[in-house]
Design a binder for these strands. Structure first.
Lengths: 266, 266
DNA sequence: AAAAAATAATTACATAATGCAACATTAAAG
DNA sequence: CTTTAATGTTGCATTATGTAATTATTTTTT
């Protein structure tokens, strides 16, 4: 009887239906679509089983069935597909690198912007997160993930950002103890400073950089050397800057002289 | 017990029930699901024993049983998306009627819910509105409209409603001077009261009914006579109730005796 | 634009896994 | 010892999944 102990489970680990459902929804949030065949392969079950899963989830309104798979439920999709075109690969890479800095159970702040949206998507693998954001799209995406708590910082909505700005958001930031913050930016100036478009945006990011235990700016390479009007006060409080390729040497040096490290996503 | 010595790494061969329970709950918190077979293997007990454990924990409300295992407990109420399709025509009619009460330039509060979403859609003809809402979908929808300012009330997001709830939202309500509020509700009780699903929801709606110059509950006919657990305190502060067809006479009378008028959308 | 080919959905049924209940066995307690 | 609580076993009901034939749908080809 003692010998039994050494026996490890060989193939018995057939996935529980709710696990499949969670993973399907996670993939949907990350990719926007799922295919029946790819899911059947992944879970090592028949396509029929996946079809039954998808049908069930569709009846719950958690996705839309399409030929060969499923897509995000319509209202979310709008928020999702939009603006995803430019530099999508770079942003996805940055998202993955950012997600690598996050552990299960952390409190994460996500700024508005398409790059931070990519971070949100990459975070779908983490469990038990608390997400805190000013972005409507991010809040909507993340609140549909299982095991994620979402706090929306309120305030006036900037139609361009589709995110809360202004005094209310600024105040709301105070209430949170944030483990790690991912912030967007308008540009990365030649002398190694992250800059912004608006005064209130700059102030908001500055505060978050100061409040979070660790703050990172996420910037794709199109922002290198770009000049936007506002400096982000005390931006050097940030722990680092995450980019998709190494910025010009001059910028790197200037940046690291101020403090933040440069993290290049691959 | 020879086995005790042999297995120093994992639990002892026959873990006590409370240990199993603790471990089961720990795994649930970590993964969201547990499987009966994997637990039986891990503890080296029979499936039946695990089943009895899970049944006990389920009775205590600490998890939900599913085929083959258990998942995190989630109080069940029809998910937001599930309800979106139902009664679409009725909701559109209510939306038009509600929009008829709004003038250009007003400050409008929109509660979460599918019926209020219909109101939001109907409001697209009005100009220069200020919209104030707890609903992510409504905020996203309205901020894309020209000539509309949107204020999102922040707070923790309820995944079912996809809207902010809790203390932050409650506090944020104070800051606004609202001309007209459109509020949802869980049901319209036989004695002419609007009722709600949750305590915090009821409180939030009550406050808004008190704060707005005029407040209307929007209720489609599926809510007539439905009993949900929470009364909305001082709901008779509301100016009226907008419905898609006339409720039973008894309800109408009870309602109007309390104050609010009944508006039937066509 | 129509026909043909390929892919996917549906249906119906077979098989395997799980749930349940009754009873048997073991381990601890008095 | 006996008693009691917990766990294991067995047989059968139920549920989930797999398989295969059929029907739709999409895509490709002409």
């Amino acid at each position: 009887m003692i010998a039994d102990i050494a026996m490890s489970d060989s193939q018995n680990a057939r996935a529980l239906a709710p696990r499949r459902h969670a993973e399907i929804l996670r993939r949907l949030a990350a990719d926007g679509t799922v295919g029946i065949t790819e899911l059947a392969d992944f879970f090592d079950v028949s396509r029929q089983t996946i079809r039954r899963d998808l049908k069930l989830l569709a009846e719950r309104g958690q996705l839309d069935l399409v030929h060969g798979g499923a897509t995000l439920f319509e209202p979310i999709e709008a928020a999702f597909t939009e603006r995803r075109e430019e530099n999508a690969g770079a942003k996805a890479a940055i998202g993955r690198a950012a997600a690598g800095l996050v552990r299960d159970g952390m409190v994460v702040f996500l700024d508005s912007g398409t790059t931070t949206l990519a971070v949100a998507q990459a975070l779908s693998e983490r469990k038990n997160l608390t997400i805190c954001t000013t972005s409507l799209s991010i809040a909507l995406l993340m609140c549909r993930q299982p095991q994620v708590r979402v706090h929306m910082l309120g305030g006036e909505i900037d139609p361009d950002e589709e995110a809360a700005v202004g005094i209310d958001a600024l105040e709301a930031i105070r209430h949170f103890r944030v483990d790690v913050a991912f912030l967007g930016g308008g540009g990365l100036s030649p002398d190694g400073e992250v800059t912004d478009f608006t005064r209130s945006g700059a102030e908001q990011r500055s505060r978050m950089a100061g409040t979070a235990a660790k703050a990172y700016f996420v910037l794709d390479s199109s922002k290198f050397g770009r000049l936007t009007p506002l400096r982000i006060p005390r931006f050097e409080q940030a722990a680092g800057v995450i980019v998709d390729r190494r910025p010009p040497e001059a910028i790197c040096e200037a940046l690291e002289r101020r403090g933040p490290v440069v993290i290049v996503a691959t």
